[in-house]
């Protein structure tokens, strides 16, 4: 197999081009007045940091933190028992239910968000057919429901995959040694599944924190997260927004990258080769 090694080299180059280079450029952009679309001489400056005192940005940062944490906590509270329950089922049932949890992800994400939007309108199909009006557009509750529904599977999958592979003899051993069900769970099962929990928390929290269509649609643009700020800073040509500044956007993106690096280090600790990621 040794002579097949060279096949991995182009991949390293490819990843270098698409990961390393843009990261370096983002750093330069964030700390200078370099113009991305008009490359030339630039000066190192901290002027871009002024975005962190803009009210809009401060509230977006705060919202990102709050919404992603609440979403993650709710997803964990629901997702762990679900993953646990699924792992106790027979092989066949487990397979079917897991597949059913993946299936909705094959529907267009944007349309799923629009579906919630239609459902949360003061006059919706539901209110027409059943007389129940949710009227949750533009409210934090609406955004949170949308987020939980969207990201819950990403919490369940990694936890499930760890629980499924767990050695049941350990649990039996704990019980033989006199542990109660609760003690077995707290001292054996849960610690053994912590790798899956870490993956699950990250795979839920990062996308929730960076989502921008969901808060824009369900939150009616009243609830902005970092993703919305990044979008408005970067998509100058597409959006034609006047406040666009790629350098400021770069700075916020760097902040996200730092978070993703931290998450990444955590995931790599618990799962070196990314087996809980798919």
């Amino acid at each position: 197999m040794r002579r097949l090694r060279p096949y991995s080299l182009p991949y390293l180059l490819w990843m270098g081009v698409f990961i390393l280079i843009p990261t370096l450029i983002l750093i330069v952009l964030g700390f200078s007045n370099l113009q991305l679309y008009n490359l030339g001489v630039f000066e190192i400056t901290l002027v871009n940091f002024t975005i962190f005192i803009q009210d809009q940005v401060v509230s977006a940062l705060w919202n990102s933190l709050v919404y992603s944490i609440i979403t993650t906590v709710i997803c964990f509270i629901i997702g762990y028992p679900v993953a646990y329950y699924l792992s106790t089922l027979s092989d066949k049932k487990r397979k079917i239910l897991l597949a059913m949890m993946i299936v909705p992800l094959w529907s267009n994400m944007l349309l799923r968000i629009i579906a919630w939007e239609k459902l949360f309108m003061p006059t919706s199909i539901i209110s027409d057919l059943f007389g129940i009006s949710f009227d949750l557009l533009g409210t934090p509750t609406g955004v949170l429901i949308g987020m939980v529904a969207m990201y819950l599977p990403f919490m369940v999958f990694p936890i499930f995959s760890v629980l499924e592979k767990m050695d049941y003899k350990l649990i039996e051993a704990a019980k033989d040694l006199g542990a109660s069900d609760l003690q077995t769970f707290v001292k054996v099962t849960f610690p053994l599944s912590s790798g899956g929990v870490i993956s699950g928390v990250i795979m839920t929290m990062l996308p929730a924190m960076t989502s921008f269509v969901l808060p824009a649609r369900i939150g009616l643009g009243k609830i902005n997260l970092i993703g919305n700020i990044i979008e408005s800073k970067f998509m100058k040509e597409v959006l034609g927004s006047s406040g666009a500044s790629i350098n400021q956007g770069a700075l916020i993106s760097l902040l996200l990258m730092v978070l993703s690096v931290i998450s990444f280090v955590l995931i790599t600790r618990v799962d070196k080769e990314g087996e809980t990621l798919i």
Partner: peptide, 17 residues
């Protein structure tokens, strides 16, 4: 580990990169 960077990275970061 390198392979998993785009998997963990939020889509918006990948998109901007």
């Amino acid at each position: 580990v390198i392979n998993n960077v785009p998997v963990v990275n939020p889509d918006i970061v990948t998109g901007i990169s």
